[in-house]
C-alpha cells in the first residue's frame, strides 16, 4: 500500500510527463515541417501566391 504522498507524487509526475510530451511533440512537429518547407523553397518550389508576390515586386 502506497502512502497518500506517493499517489499525489505519481499524479503530478504523470501530468508533467504528458504535458512535456505534448509540448515536445508540437514543437518538434513544427520544426520538422519548417525544415521541409525550407528544403522545398531551396529547390525552387514555391507557392503560386508567393511566386505572384515575387513577380509583383520585380
Amino acid at each position: 500500500m502506497m502512502s497518500h504522498a506517493a499517489y499525489v507524487f505519481a499524479s503530478y509526475a504523470v501530468a508533467f510527463a504528458v504535458v512535456v510530451g505534448l509540448v515536445v511533440w508540437v514543437v518538434g512537429d513544427g520544426r520538422a515541417r519548417q525544415r521541409e518547407l525550407k528544403a522545398l523553397e531551396a529547390a525552387g518550389i514555391r507557392r503560386r501566391s508567393a511566386e505572384a508576390t515575387a513577380g509583383e515586386a520585380q
Binding site: D29, G30, R33, L40, I45, R47, R48
Partner: peptide
C-alpha cells in the same frame, strides 16, 4: 503545424 503540413503536401504535388 497542420497548415504547414498541408503546404508541404501541395508543394510536393506541384513539384
Amino acid at each position: 503545424n497542420e497548415i504547414w503540413r498541408r503546404r508541404v503536401t501541395s508543394l510536393r504535388r506541384q513539384a
